[in-house]
């Protein structure tokens, strides 16, 4: 039954309806691009005009426009400049070269994924403990919330220094910062999820004389899965932010954060924008992957989607 119910709207799928539904998004995005090009022209124009004036060349308006679109060090790079830089820096160099953006993306991505895994597991364990121990709920939960009021990123340099002194360098300290940032949404979401079963359901488990572990495995855990994936989606982005920021104060040689930092030191605007777009793409892909896993899990658990 559920299958045919799902198939029904698919059968009626029409391209025109799809376009009509998404027209507002396309319009807004198109307007954004227009604004972007306009901004690129307006912000870069003084610089180009100065260059023409210095060389005492007479210039037409179209030459001015062309100049703003191809400035070497633009204030605002035009979208196509960013796209070209992105393409060049990914396909223009061998994969393991430090000039290749994909290499930097990989460095950051690996720290993100490791940190995300540590943070998610830690968050889940913490939530399970908090749900089962009253003292811990009372004493720890307020501090977990306070820990996020602290700008954790400020601790990043310390963590790197401390781990560096013990002899641990590279990926792991960055992952710890990611984990520190991303355990919070998971812990909070999972506390909510694990306590989401109704008292009626918990009573039913008691009438079956289920022990705490059984209640956890058969009732609380399955009930918390939607909460888990909602929190994971939030925390994967935070984990990426953590990995990028961890690269900033430590003078890391590789990674998207290092790319941003060197771009800002040497005035390579286009490089910064390309690195940003790259980070956005990574974030989108990670979220899409978690979404896909969430859908698969929901189907596996028998959700009517």
């Amino acid at each position: 039954m559920t299958n045919s119910a799902v198939a029904l709207p698919r059968a009626n799928w029409r391209p025109t309806a799809w376009v009509g539904e998404h027209a507002p998004i396309f319009t807004v995005v198109a307007v954004l691009f227009v604004v972007w090009y306009l901004a690129a022209f307006l912000m870069n124009a003084p610089q180009v005009r100065d260059a023409f004036a210095r060389n005492e060349v007479k210039y037409t308006f179209s030459e001015l426009v062309a100049g703003t679109m191809e400035a070497k060090r633009p204030v605002v790079p035009a979208p196509h400049q960013v796209a070209i830089e992105l393409y060049d820096s990914i396909f223009g160099y061998p994969l393991n070269s430090p000039r290749n953006l994909a290499y930097h993306a990989w460095v950051t991505l690996s720290a993100t994924v490791v940190g995300f895994a540590i943070g998610a597991i830690f968050g889940i364990l913490l939530a399970i403990l908090i749900v089962h121990l009253r003292t811990l709920e009372k004493s720890l939960l307020p501090w977990i919330i306070c820990s996020q009021m602290v700008p954790i990123l400020a601790i990043a340099p310390i963590i790197i220094v401390v781990f560096g002194a013990i002899g641990i360098r590279g990926l792991f300290p960055k992952s710890i910062i990611s984990a520190y940032l991303c355990f919070f949404p998971v812990a909070i979401g999972m506390v909510k999820g694990l306590t989401s079963p109704d008292p009626i359901q918990l009573d039913l488990m008691r009438t079956w004389s289920a022990n705490k572990l059984q209640v956890l495995r058969k009732l609380r855990w399955p009930a918390s899965i939607p909460f888990l994936f909602a929190s994971l989606k939030v925390s994967v982005t935070i984990s990426l932010v953590g990995a990028i920021v961890a690269e900033l104060p430590t003078g890391a040689q590789a990674g998207i954060g290092a790319r941003l930092l060197s771009g800002s030191y040497y005035g390579q605007t286009v490089q910064i924008w390309a690195a940003l777009v790259c980070a956005a793409v990574i974030a989108t892909v990670l979220i899409a992957m978690i979404d896909a896993i969430a859908k698969l899990t929901a189907r596996h658990m028998g959700a009517a989607t």
Binding site: V75, K233, T237, L240, V241, I244, V245, I256, L260, L261, G263, S264, G267, T269, I272, W273, A275, L276, A279, A280, A283, T284, I287
Partner: peptide
């Protein structure tokens, strides 16, 4: 979509 992006990355651009 933008809420899910690492927005802090715009910091160097803003400083510029």
């Amino acid at each position: 979509f933008v809420s899910a992006l690492p927005v802090v990355g715009i910091a160097p651009i803003m400083v510029m």
